[in-house]
Amino acid sequence: MEPPVIFDRAARRLRRDRAQPRFGEHAFLRAAMLEGIADRLATVTRRFTDVLDLGCCDAGFPAPPGAQVARLDAGFAFARAAGGVQGDEDRLPFADASFDLVVSVGVLDQVDDLPGALALARRVLRPDGLFLAAFVGAGALPRLRAAWRQADRERPAARLHPGIDVRAAGDLLVRAGFALPVADVEALEVGYPDMGRLVDDLRGMAASNLLAARTPTTRGAFAAAAAAFAAQAGPDGRVRERFPIISLTGWAPDPSQPRPARRGSATASLAQALGPLPKP
């Protein structure tokens, strides 16, 4: 069965191409995600030789020492700038078991078939290969969502992307066949003086409305949303927006990996482990 069409692939490519020249000015979310991935990678002692960078943007994930990196991005301009190929995360043009590390930064929240994209990432990994990803999750931009709900209260319209929560993300890792899956979330908050600055950031990071069923925005609707957004400002005159960053870690299965003990194989009971209970 074909997955539902949520995003406009053609619009996504176009928005990424438009964002490429000034992307570095708006890349604070990607920078935070890269920092988190670097921290997780620093705890891994093994050496990686073949790396796949999914959603490379214009610079790409920094290559580990001695590793060869293949880069892919949905935008042609990003792919060209990073020396990669253009393609979609849920339609990978790579052979199975081609890499020992797959990294995806800031793009999986814009993919129609996220379960399929994770399954493909698992397939292109060699046994005991590592998958690391980060993307914006459910609950992002609550102030902007509230502003648009108020502006569109008579005619609700699709303005912002749906999000996936951390529990569902972990379940999808398991469904895709990853071993030792870990999913966690950390929120980043940013203060904005007005809605225009936030929209400028979203456009600059190629994260504006990509929904296939999006509705054109009129000047009146934008003005109403901007006023509702400004009304949520704090004492400093800024509106605090929230960006939950979901981080995923998973390994391609391999016999060398630790496995949970078989049920019923314990040699001691819980009562023995706890010892005798104190007398009342």
Rank of each mutant, 00 (worst) to 15 (best):
F76T: 11
A266M: 07
D201A: 12
Q232C: 13
R203L: 13
A32K: 07
P235N: 02
L274D: 05
A31T: 15
L130Y: 04
A134H: 03
L188Q: 12
L188T: 11
R71C: 12
F76N: 01
F131C: 02
P181L: 05
I164A: 08
P253S: 08
G83I: 03
G75V: 07
A121L: 03
T45F: 01
D201H: 15
A187P: 04
V166K: 06
V111W: 00
R40S: 01
G129S: 01
M33W: 04
T45P: 02
L118S: 03
A271W: 03
Q86I: 05
A223C: 02
G137K: 04
G83H: 02
V105G: 11
M1W: 02
P255D: 05
A74V: 15
G250K: 01
R167Q: 14
D152T: 10
G139D: 02
R214F: 11
V166Q: 12
L172E: 06
F229N: 14
G116T: 01
Q272R: 14
V124N: 08
C56G: 11
A179G: 11
A74C: 13
L132I: 08
L108M: 15
F243W: 11
L173V: 10
D194N: 15
W148Q: 09
R262E: 14
F99E: 03
A81I: 04
L141T: 09
D165C: 12
Q257P: 07
T267C: 02
L118F: 02
D58G: 14
S208M: 02
K279I: 04
V185N: 03
P253D: 08
P244M: 00
P255I: 06
I37D: 10
F61E: 06
A11C: 06
E2H: 10
R46A: 09
T49E: 14
L211A: 13
A179L: 01
I164Y: 11
D184K: 04
V44Y: 01
R18D: 15
P93E: 06
A67H: 11
D113W: 01
Q257T: 09
R238F: 00
M205L: 08
R242F: 03
A157M: 13
L270K: 12
P127Q: 05
R16K: 15
E2A: 10
D113S: 06
A231F: 10
F243H: 01
L270F: 13
R46T: 11
R263N: 03
R240F: 02
F131K: 08
M1P: 13
Q68K: 14
L29A: 03
D201Y: 08
L202T: 10
R214V: 13
V85K: 10
V44E: 14
T249K: 06
F222M: 09
M205N: 12
F99A: 06
